[in-house]
Design a protein around this nucleic acid. Structure first.
Lengths: 183, 183
DNA sequence: ATCCCATGTGTACGAGTGTACATAACCAAG
DNA sequence: CTTGGTTATGTACACTCGTACACATGGGAT
């Protein structure tokens, strides 16, 4: 049967799942499509992930981790001397510019939690992490509000094909931040 | 073939589609499931809506219209003497309380625009309408920001199972509204 | 009255899906 | 070396789906 020893099989399946969602959306995610993308037999995907929900949970978690690294690497959020609203607005602009496959992938998995309870803990984890990160620059209430507003702005751009207006984003993000707490 | 003359057939199919999405989500939407729900033969749904996208567009549009009526009926948004932030926060609370089938239905169709370009014009229309409605109480920039923030707050509640905190919502919505423009 | 065409209906086909399961290959422990 | 249990593989089944299409029907124009 030409079985190959492949200790990272599980990881490769997750990577393939992320690529599939990026290209065809969640609607195109199936055990078979992932198997084809990962170049493994069907039985392998069903063995490692009995349910598609399991696979999506793993994919969303991994996407979140990768994203968190990008944020951390950018720094800026840590430095209390930078303009927080401007920093966030610029960061969103960077994120929304160019190829949006990654953005759409992130949001599609994130929003899938609306109908798939299995994904909710992961979505919750993500929102909490980002809010906590922002809490280093402001109070928790403001941090939560910033996350919400950023989500809303991104969605309006993504859902309505409207261009991203960085000045506008900076302006309204700034309004949410109390003057006293500004860097 | 026992054909029945049914001039409102098309409308009934749309209603059925909305019920199906509410109960089983977009993933459960198919020509057959809608046909069963509407109690019409399969050929009838494929005749009136060649594509499922067409059906979703009609469903989203109808859901938006129904929602707009609810907003309009509530008044409050028109009266310049009410606290706008409090009004919006209370309205979200009302909306998120109790049975969330309707809320989830709305958002699922709305968010589906992320991957289905056919839905984007309808999503755009909805966002514009709401923003314009809010523009009667503030400037357009603030109105857009309010819509974004409300979307973000609702999503966090729906995606993470977090309870809705009306005081918090009122507080941060209030921050977005410039003092000079407050009612 | 009759003709036409939008509307309505039933059925069939091929493609894709989740799932189950018998079997094979392999690593690790005894 | 042998045994045992995890990992891997191929195949088959039952099901749902979109789509196409031939045919029925009846209202409204002529």
């Amino acid at each position: 049967m030409a079985r190959r020893y492949d200790p990272e099989r599980r990881q490769r399946i997750i990577d393939a799942a992320i690529r599939v969602v990026g290209q065809k959306g969640i609607a195109g995610l199936s055990h078979r499509s992932v198997a084809a993308e990962a170049d493994v037999p069907l039985g392998s995907t069903t063995y490692h992930f009995t349910t598609l929900d399991e696979l999506m949970v793993a994919a969303l978690r991994q996407a979140n981790e990768g994203f968190a690294k990008v944020i951390a690497a950018r720094g800026g959020l840590e430095d209390p001397h930078t303009d927080l609203a401007g920093e966030l607005a610029g960061w969103m602009g960077e994120w929304l510019a160019g190829d949006r496959t990654g953005v759409e992938l992130e949001y599609e998995l994130y929003l899938a939690a609306l109908r798939r309870p299995a994904l909710r803990p992961v979505a919750d984890e993500w929102a909490r992490d980002l809010a906590e990160r922002l809490s280093r620059r402001t109070d928790p209430v403001t941090a939560r509000a910033l996350v919400a507003l950023m989500d809303g702005i991104c969605l309006q751009v993504l859902l309505t094909d409207a261009p991203y207006d960085e000045a506008y984003a900076r302006e309204v993000l700034g309004r949410v931040i109390p003057r006293a707490a500004e860097g």
